[in-house]
């Protein structure tokens, strides 16, 4: 189960909406071993694409060095799908390389003013195996 503050969930959805029709991506760092997503870091999609995302390699290193310095780890790794459901694609599964992270997918295929809330789903991806998990929102 992913437990995440409502404000962080909302900020991730807002980022996905803002970058639509390109895929948005980022992480939420948290203290090592805590499983608590605390610090949202919006990343630039270096691929600048509606069907692909990739962190810039220099920014990726800077991000990890900052996390190491703070004794943090990537608790959530998120990205958006802009025309398809919020479910990991074959590419997502093949490239997932943080077995301890919650992989969050947001779909922006429905317009912002839709009556339905944005799809925001979370998965574990370990050794090519995807397991969806419950998302529990806490106030804050």
């Amino acid at each position: 189960m992913l437990t995440i503050r409502r404000s962080i969930r909302d900020a991730i959805v807002a980022h996905a909406r803002r970058d639509h029709p390109d895929e948005a991506c980022g992480i939420v760092a948290g203290p090592e071993g805590s499983d608590e997503p605390v610090r949202l870091v919006e990343m630039v999609n270096a691929a600048g694409s509606p069907t692909f995302y990739e962190f810039d390699s220099g920014e990726l290193l800077a991000l990890y060095k900052e996390m190491w310095k703070n004794d943090e780890e990537p608790v959530v790794i998120y990205h958006s799908h802009t025309a398809t459901e919020a479910y990991p694609s074959r590419t997502d599964i093949g490239l997932a390389s943080e077995p301890g992270a919650h992989y969050v997918l947001v779909s922006t295929r429905e317009p912002d003013d839709a009556d339905v809330p944005a799809e925001f789903r979370s998965y574990r991806i370990v050794d090519g195996e995807v397991t969806e998990e419950e998302v529990r929102l806490v106030e804050g």
Partner: peptide, 10 residues
């Protein structure tokens, strides 16, 4: 050494 953080919708 760092694996890329990447993916896509296909």
């Amino acid at each position: 050494v760092l694996p890329a953080v990447a993916g896509g919708s296909h």
